[in-house]
């Protein structure tokens, strides 16, 4: 199982690539809706990418209120 830090780093890398923003512009505690400029449908698109990458299933209701990469990583980490 990857470490929590590695999971977080992979999420940041995936998000940067998917939404075509420089990786260095993303930080763990960023509000990803604001930093990436995305809406809820795009957030679900990111969730699909993350589920496919980590081979986990994360019910989207667990993302209610989640806005930063670090918390998102924690939600994924407990399902790895």
């Amino acid at each position: 199982m990857p470490t929590a830090e590695k999971t977080l780093d992979e999420i940041l890398t995936l998000a940067a690539a998917h939404f075509k923003v420089p990786r260095e512009k993303l930080s763990p505690d960023d509000d990803f809706f604001k930093t990436l400029g995305i809406d809820s449908l795009q957030a679900l698109d990111l969730l699909t990418k993350l589920e496919n990458h980590f081979r986990v299933e994360l019910p989207d209701y667990e993302l209610q209120g989640v806005t930063d990469f670090r918390t998102l990583a924690g939600k994924i980490q407990i399902r790895l």
């Binding site: 809706f33 809406d39 809820s40 449908l41 957030a43 679900l44 989207d60 209701y61 209610q64």
Partner: peptide
């Protein structure tokens, strides 16, 4: 105006 209306 919430960014998350499609999240249940």
């Amino acid at each position: 105006t919430d960014a998350q209306p499609y999240l249940p």
